[in-house]
Simulated assay, not measured.
Amino acid sequence: MKITLNRVNDNFHFELKNERGHIVNVDSRPEFGGDDQGPSPMELVLMGVAGCSAIDMISILKKQRQEISSFKAEVEGERVQVGEAKPFKDIHLVFYLEGNIKEDKAAKAAQLSFDKYCSVSKTLEPTATIHYKVVLNNVELAKI
């Protein structure tokens, strides 16, 4: 896996490209000297956790022949000062699923993602605690 980074302007706007040609813009907020032309690197980390676990959960539920009509997630990160850096301490995810999905299968899909499959959350495990809950058809199922 390889990513290339090119600086776009004189501040902190960067264009990142993967080997398949997909482009993501990264920047900093104006109060930190950026132009707000893309998410910050730490926002991308949260996006990565949400995207990775969503792919896992949908893959698991499809294999179990569950009918997903809607899948959304929200993720928030709490950071802590460690020297000059501010890594994530806690990450909270809420998954909103709708469809003809059995409750136990939705809860198990989330559990499997975080316990076994999600490489992004496994990368963050040494420094951040990941909490999640699943809301299926407007009913909260699992909260970890």
Score class of each variant (00 low, 15 high):
Phe71Lys: 07
Pro87Lys: 05
Glu74Val: 04
Gly51Tyr: 00
His13Ala: 15
Lys89Ser: 15
Arg20Glu: 15
Lys86Ile: 04
Leu136Phe: 02
Arg65Asn: 13
His92Thr: 12
Asp115Val: 04
Ala107Arg: 12
Gly21Glu: 14
Gly77Asp: 06
Asn100Pro: 04
Ile23Asp: 15
Cys118His: 03
Gly38Asp: 09
Lys72Thr: 11
Val135Gly: 06
Glu125Gly: 01
Gln37Met: 14
Ser53His: 01
Ile68Arg: 01
His131Asn: 12
Asp104Ile: 02
Lys63Tyr: 08
Gln37Pro: 01
Leu97Lys: 02
Ile55Trp: 05
Phe14Trp: 09
Ala85His: 11
Phe12Tyr: 10
Arg29Ile: 07
Phe32Pro: 05
Glu74Asp: 15
Glu19Asn: 14
Lys72Asn: 15
Tyr96Ala: 03
Ile3Trp: 04
Ser59Cys: 02
Asn9Met: 14
Lys116Thr: 09
Glu19Asp: 15
Gly34Ala: 10
Arg79Ser: 13
Ile60Asn: 05
Arg20Phe: 10
Asn25Glu: 09
Asn9Ser: 15
Glu103Leu: 01
Asp90Phe: 09
Val26Ala: 13
Arg20Val: 09
Ala50Trp: 00
Ala109Glu: 00
Val8Gln: 12
Leu61Cys: 10
Leu61Val: 04
Phe88Gln: 07
Leu46Asn: 06
Leu112Phe: 04
Glu125Asn: 11
Phe32Lys: 12
Ala54Lys: 03
Phe95Lys: 01
Arg79Gly: 11
Ile144Asn: 14
Thr4Arg: 08
Ser28Leu: 11
Lys89Phe: 06
Gln111Cys: 01
Leu112Asn: 03
Thr127Arg: 08
Glu78Leu: 08
Lys102Ala: 09
Glu98Met: 02
Val8Glu: 14
Lys63Asp: 10
Tyr96Gln: 10
Tyr117Trp: 00
Ala106Trp: 01
Ile60Ser: 03
Lys105Thr: 03
Ile3Lys: 02
Gln66Thr: 01
Asn137Asp: 13
